[in-house]
Amino acid sequence: MIAGHAPKPVTARMENHGSSMLKVAMATGQDLFARTGSMVAYEGFIQYEPNPPAVRQMASAWLTGESAPVMKCSGDGLLYLADYGADVVCLNLNNESVSVNGTNLLAFDAHLQWGVERVKGLAKFAGQGLFNVAVSGTGWVAITSRGTPIVVDCGSGADETYVDPDALVAWSSGLKMKAKRSFKASSLIGRGSGEAFQIAFSGQGFVVVQPSEDSTDRLRARG
């Protein structure tokens, strides 16, 4: 039983070990940004720098005054990351760009361009404000999802794709997004407050959603 879970040989920079653990092959000069608190194990010589100055500036919009939610990992070895059992998906960007919901970002290569964006007009909607991190370039990004995610293509037709903000994981950066409120007092979709809203996406690209409306940031909540 134990033998069945031994690590498999490394074949890529980022890989899944099972559905909910990420294995990163670290090498000198190829640093990684990972969510603070997401490390579950490592082999080799890896150093962690929480709250690096460069990140603090970049992520200032993300913060509520505490330390930055990402740490810089550098060194040689194998690094295992997980987020409370959420499914992990590794994305290999090839000069592409993707926007990831802040709570669903697990790790990404340090050499990628990234920035924190506040979604215009939507910030007050989801509980703690909806922040997303736009990552672009060529390299690896790992995202988490509560349950197996699903990827849906947005069409180019007149209709838009509407997503519950709590279930939104990531989307391709080319999409236009806007808030949609259902003004009818009787239509209560979405969770909690009774305010019904969705995010409408239009344009060419894809949207990733998770089968859960749990958007709490577990890594953060732990403190």
Binding site: N94, W140, F206
Partner: peptide, 19 residues
Amino acid sequence: AGPSYAAAPTQGAGIQVSM
């Protein structure tokens, strides 16, 4: 199917493949 780790930065498989 991404390229091997050493070659990662140059030959990306792209998001579509991962997804």
